[in-house]
Design a protein around this nucleic acid. Structure first.
Lengths: 246, 246
DNA sequence: CGACGTGTTGAGTGTGATCAACATCTGTGG
DNA sequence: CCACAGATGTTGATCACACTCAACACGTCG
């Protein structure tokens, strides 16, 4: 397994390739062998719209995005967050239609793979396909914990869980220097993730700050005591395995 | 594509094969080529325990099961339900450890595939692997709607959503003759799925019954007006594509 | 028979929602 | 430079949806 990045088509230091181990051949040519394009978007931009026929699979190369869906009267639920190296819209590529929207939270760079490319990957590089599915399984394992949080944790426990989770995901990506989130997370985001009102979230975050577990700055959060948050939430964290390649 | 079931190793009328299109060769030999065993369990039996190292992938051949996880003090959250043809523990097989428990709700029959078999399937039958992943993606797409329900719908809307969902999943499997669920769903199940107390669920179900949308019998539910439930929940249902093969 | 699981109902409580007002800060246009 | 709108955050007052505690009815099963 030689590693001469100079020989690759492009995408040096790709965060996706850093998390998906490819076959030797694809490692040489890069995951971009299956890539059909690249997109840069500003903060707040919509990436995918609920209900759209979206045959593309995206990989988040830079920035933070979030998936969400809404009821007819506007009540919104945030389903999850994506960090560099995550895939977006795998389900859409597999099933043809997106059942949720995706928005860019910060400025983002997306790599685009079309549906045909995904099929080709399954046929020609089973190892890469397996790795992509494994990666997707990791991302989706968080959904279960979110469900537990919204359903059974109190507002305080739930907020503690979410902020600890975001910290654990942001830190390895370099997006939480000194505990400070490097992306504009608003209290509205937190409220829509936990299924609570923004007023109640404001008071809950204040309590977390009084407990010296976090601090809330303008459009951002500082994690002061992750262990304390985990303890309060009754959660063990993502675990070592989550961040390992493959 | 000949279909001579007599030539197959076993598993006639397998509900999994009915939903996953295999390559001609595997179609002939059956999905059981990758199968390592078969398990029959009674109602209420535990299938997988949270935290267990479970390298097996299961396919539910008969019956109904549910996934759940709990907080330290016993608060329980049901994450989802599995019907015949669904895969269970795909994430566990991919990642090595189960982060949730699975219990049999009725008597069930499980087909067992080990981790190695899954790997072999990726390598030797990309089409089957793609189909399995597609099938899993469909099952998991329900998680998003559950999250929206628990987070943003009122108790009445949420209960209407859940009962409509279960009906839409049970009916094609023949588990809802005349709208009557053929598996023992208790009000405790409903409460733990929606993150509500059992007392409140009891009153909510009573309201749904007064609206003539459902009726509640002993350990079971009768759907009287699915369209009314969907309308109340503000949900369009699973859609045709969900039940299609492939 | 008693124990247990399930379903039902009443009464009192509380977490979290709603309504409302205001403080900042940003960007925009006059 | 100011006026203004919009997004975000903050706080108080009131309300209600859902929780807790409690008791009881009914069935099954040992």
């Amino acid at each position: 397994m030689d590693d001469r990045p100079a020989e690759r088509n492009g995408c040096p230091d790709c965060p996706i390739e850093g998390r998906v181990r490819l076959s030797p051949e694809n490692h040489r040519f890069g995951l971009d062998r299956f890539k059909t394009g690249e997109i840069d978007l500003g903060a707040g931009a919509g990436i995918v719209l609920e209900g759209a026929r979206e045959p593309n699979l995206f990989a988040l190369a830079r920035g933070v995005a979030f998936r969400h869906k809404s009821l007819a009267d506007g009540r919104r639920q945030i389903l999850g967050y994506a960090f560099p190296g995550d895939f977006l819209g795998l389900r859409g590529a597999l099933l043809g239609e997106m059942q949720h929207s995706i928005d860019a939270m910060s400025a983002v760079r997306l790599c685009v793979f079309d549906r045909a490319g995904l099929l080709r990957m399954f046929a020609t590089d089973p190892g890469a396909a397996y790795a992509v599915v494994r990666r997707a399984a990791k991302d989706e394992s968080i959904l279960d914990e979110n469900l537990l949080s919204i359903g059974r944790r109190t507002a305080l426990e739930s907020a503690a869980y979410l902020l600890a989770l975001l910290h654990q995901r942001a830190r390895p990506a370099g997006l939480a220097p000194e505990g400070r989130f490097a992306f504009p997370l608003t209290q509205q985001h937190v409220a829509d993730t936990l299924g609570l009102s923004i007023v109640h979230i404001n008071r809950t975050l204040k309590r977390l700050a009084e407990l010296e577990l976090i601090a809330w700055l303008d459009r951002g959060c500082v994690i002061r005591d992750e262990a304390g948050l985990l303890d309060l939430a009754g959660w063990t964290g993502l675990g070592e395995a989550f961040h390992q390649v493959g």
